[in-house]
Design a protein around this nucleic acid. Structure first.
Lengths: 340, 340
DNA sequence: TTGTATGCGTTATCAT
DNA sequence: ATGATAACGCATACAA
């Protein structure tokens, strides 16, 4: 047995398809008696309108596309949570796709979503200008696009993310206040947010009259765990074990910071006694680490919710928008044992 | 400007819609010259067929629905990764939804997916009989359903998960081999896989002639972190600090085990010197914990890939299947410092 | 080799 | 208050 359609109901009740359709949408044209009959029959037979046909007809899919780099990242999945929470209050439902940090896959995601007739797109782009032409084309085709998280993207549109400068600044400032002056900043290669975090790091040093030392800044490829581990071990061995030239570490991402903690434990370097650690991180495990990890927490759920609201607002606007806003939410500094 | 359609192309090139359609699908009926012309035009104008219209016409959406409890769980997101990897080799694309451990939301997910005309469904059900009638109805409507992870569900269909008994058995056995005899098993309330893990735990004890002690078994509500923390603290205080009646802990889930480690650190109980710890866990952070956490790892990606392959196989089968298989993949025991 | 006509399930316009 | 008809974009049986 296949799925129930309007036609099935019409045939069964000896009325026309259009009457059924109108009855189900509670039209004023239909008598109460007919409405009741149809609605009851539909409920009883577990009728659900075919969204494909409906969308095709009305030229609107009530669907929002979301493209993220990778779901299996705590921060990302928290954002998705926020997106779902926000969309649940609306008629829209969500299709997610993963770009896996690859521009070509990202392009494919955009194409698939276009074919599905999404009414709007939310994207955390792979790089600062990835697929910019495709995104422009979408906007031109009246499909609004919102950028979230990676808000350094070149497209001129609504953007929602965090204030990376401020987050990095306050983390660094905290370490300085704890008396640290030889702070190592470990960040990711090709990480969109890296520049702003580095700027915040440098600004905090400058404000404390601590000169910035090239030796205290290192970029790692953070997709490749083995390489990441090797790079971190190398610099710790050289700069700490040989030269005692590090008294604190500020990690730029979740992965970097937690790996750093693991490696410090392996090298039997005591945290925070020998080296204090703080990182950008959204993992709920931070509090379970030993020592509990101090972190800069990003309001991930809020980013998702806000971006969704903005997008739906834009979709529902009758006239196109030409002035866009970039919202940078504040981060929160949570001090735990690793930096005390 | 709206999206390009077959009609637009036909009008522009002064040929019929069906010629365009056939040319784009590389039909043998169409001359090479026309094909070339049409395909080039389509590429140049960035034409993408409307998936809604196409699905409506051919009665097949090339879409698979996936329902999980919650994406922001490492294990779940790894499964989703596997699903995506497997689907990328095929024409199918994926729509995920979250049930958030709520049967009513789960029902809604099923409805939405039905409306979208999915060709098949993969689900990790909320409980052992949740929405079983809806799932049966789907199968009756020739939409195959595959259960993954929570394979204790009552529906008679293909199931892919892990061998929880064996995983728990080998974790417990390992602790016993390390000389532990007062092993506390902490598990989750309403956790589908809990029973099998408890059975494995008991069997390993029995095989070592260690009597099972009710005091060494505790269920926690693992959605509520505060309550979880309190429960764990309570039992540790009573059974360990007061009675020294624990020398190892076997945690049944990711959250439980990592929280337990955090609490042990807080209570200044040394791991593994005073209490050894091992857990079911898929977090990549396990190795970064201090001490590095021994874990039973579930082949999450493989579960996703296998379930997807099985589903697509079932979709493509011409005749309905009536004999179903439950695949229980083996888990892997990774010993790290926390249990040595 | 190309074109015409029809229908997928819906909604909407226009009769009746 | 109800029904007949057209159209959304596509694929396909059939006609030319």
């Amino acid at each position: 047995m296949s799925r129930t359609t309007l036609k099935d109901i019409a045939l069964e009740l000896n009325i026309s398809v259009s009457t059924v359709s109108k009855a189900l949408s509670d039209s004023y044209e239909i008598s109460e008696a007919t409405k009741k009959m149809v609605q009851e029959y539909a409920k009883k037979h577990n009728f659900h309108p075919n969204k494909l046909a409906r969308s095709l007809k009305i030229g609107k899919s009530n669907t929002i596309g979301v493209i993220v780099s990778n779901i299996s990242n705590t921060f990302v999945s928290q954002i998705l949570d926020g997106i779902q929470i926000a969309s649940q209050q609306t008629v829209y439902d969500i299709i997610f796709m993963q770009s896996r940090e690859d521009e070509r896959i990202e392009k494919n995601c955009i194409d698939v979503l276009k074919m599905r007739g999404i009414d709007g797109l939310m994207i955390a782009p792979v790089s600062f200008d990835s697929n910019i032409e495709e995104l422009k084309a979408l906007i031109k085709a009246k499909i609004p696009v919102i950028i979230f998280d990676r808000i350094n993207h070149a497209l001129d549109t609504f953007k929602v993310g965090v204030n990376n400068f401020q987050g990095a600044y306050s983390a660094t400032q905290h370490l300085i206040q704890r008396g640290k002056r030889r702070i190592l900043h470990i960040t990711g290669k090709n990480l969109g947010v890296a520049q702003e975090r580095l700027n915040g790091f440098k600004a905090a040093l400058a404000d404390a009259a601590i000169p910035f030392d090239e030796k205290h800044y290192i970029e790692c490829s953070f997709n490749n765990t083995a390489e990441l581990d090797r790079t971190i071990k190398e610099i710790l061995t050289k700069e700490y074990i040989e030269h005692k030239n590090i008294d604190a570490i500020f990690g730029a991402t979740d992965v970097i910071t937690t790996r750093t903690l693991g490696i410090l434990a392996e090298l039997q370097i005591e945290v925070p006694a020998q080296i204090a650690v703080i990182g950008f991180s959204n993992t709920q495990i931070a509090a379970s680490l030993n020592p509990a990890l101090s972190t800069v927490v990003q309001p991930a759920t809020e980013i998702g919710e806000l971006a969704t609201k903005k997008l739906i607002e834009t979709i529902n606007r009758t006239r196109p928008v030409h002035e866009f806003e970039t919202i940078e939410l504040p981060t929160q500094l949570i001090i735990r044992k690793s930096s005390l």
